[in-house]
């Protein structure tokens, strides 16, 4: 067991029962996040990336599998987690317009974690002001309501709230996808600075591969609840193996010629993601896969380690069978 992992997710499953059957939102995934790193989780809608984040932070209890945080099992849901654990794991949501209560002032929002964890022993104004300054917002914002702030400013408030309790691990669930590009850059840079300053580990969830390229040290890509490829960022972008990874890379709109050159040429996007209730048998990507083999609709591939730290779940690379 290595000690440099802050988070280990082992065979995690999260199923939701609905009237028409069972949705396998997260279906047997495993990964680790090292101390101080940014681990990227990429996927399109319905891939289960957000559910994974929600299970780790405790909003849902897992159906099965284990989550180890600093070596201790934390698989219980949010209600059964001790307060000390809630202090260590925080989350920043996608849309700050919905993650900040419109009826509470910025001060009330930021001081909630301070009060719950009794950080200031009484007067919180000083600490709230410090937190606002840290995210480069004017202290006068304390008495304002979220609706009076711009989208980027709201997300800064959400970040200040997450940092208020000095966490060691933050789940960033699409923190900038609701924001404009010119604001995104500022928020991402701030997050990267705080990571160094406070020695934070991030689980960065996004559908934006270009963004992921610039923030993550390792990347896992999810498709219909499963991780299909996991690699270091360099390896992932310059040597993508899974056909889905290639399809996603080829679909990204880019603006420079150098980027255009990086995109896999031979593959173009076809088909759509099937509904969560009709996950195809075998490899769930096979109906859209341009390189599919005979075996793909029958047998689900195993996760294979192609090179050190580069894992892929695809029959194309299973040379034992070939």
């Amino acid at each position: 067991m290595s000690n440099d992992n802050i988070l280990e997710v082992i065979n995690l499953k999260k199923y939701f029962k609905v009237s028409k059957g069972t949705i396998k939102a997260v279906d047997d995934i495993s990964f680790t996040v090292k101390y101080g790193e940014t681990f990227g989780l990429v996927g399109e809608s319905g891939s289960g990336k957000s559910t994974t984040g929600h299970v780790i932070v405790g909003l849902y209890a897992p159906t099965s599998g284990r989550i180890l945080f600093e070596g201790a099992d934390i698989s219980a849901g949010v209600e059964r987690r001790p307060l000390s654990l809630k202090k260590k794991i925080q989350m920043v949501f996608q849309d700050p317009a919905t993650s900040l209560n419109p009826k509470r002032t910025i001060k009330q929002i930021i001081e909630l974690p301070l009060k719950v964890h009794d950080i200031c022993h009484g007067d919180t104004s000083q600490k709230v002001a410090e937190l606002l300054q840290m995210v480069e917002l004017p202290v006068e914002y304390m008495d304002r309501y979220p609706t009076e702030l711009g989208g980027g400013e709201k997300q800064m408030v959400a970040i200040a709230r997450a940092l208020a309790v000095n966490p060691s691990f933050i789940i960033l669930d699409e923190p900038t996808s609701a924001l404009d590009v010119s604001i995104q850059a500022k928020i991402i840079n701030m997050l990267m600075r705080f990571q160094k300053e406070f020695n934070l580990s991030y689980l960065f969830i996004t559908h934006n591969l270009s963004l992921m390229r610039n923030v993550a040290s390792r990347v896992a890509i999810m498709y219909l609840g499963k991780i299909v490829e996991l690699a270091s960022t360099e390896e992932f972008f310059y040597n993508p193996l899974h056909p889905y990874t290639k399809m996603l890379l080829s679909s990204i709109p880019v603006i420079t010629d150098e980027e255009e050159a990086m995109k896999p040429k031979k593959i173009i996007s076809t088909g759509e993601i099937p509904g969560a209730l009709n996950v195809p048998p075998g490899c769930s990507f096979h109906p859209r896969c341009p390189e599919r083999l005979e075996i793909c609709d029958k047998v689900e591939p195993f996760m294979l380690e192609i090179s050190s730290g580069h894992l892929v779940k695809c029959h194309l690379y299973d040379f034992t069978k070939a």
Binding site: H54, V57, G58, L59, V78, L83, K86, K87, I89, Q90, M91, F93, Q94, D95, T98, S99, L100, N101, L112, P113, V116, H117, A158, R161, V165
Partner: peptide
């Protein structure tokens, strides 16, 4: 199910709050 309620839960706020 709104994120702002989830955020309060994650922080550890009481049910009453």
């Amino acid at each position: 199910m709104e994120p702002f309620v989830q955020a309060a839960e994650i922080v550890g706020a009481s049910k009453f709050h």
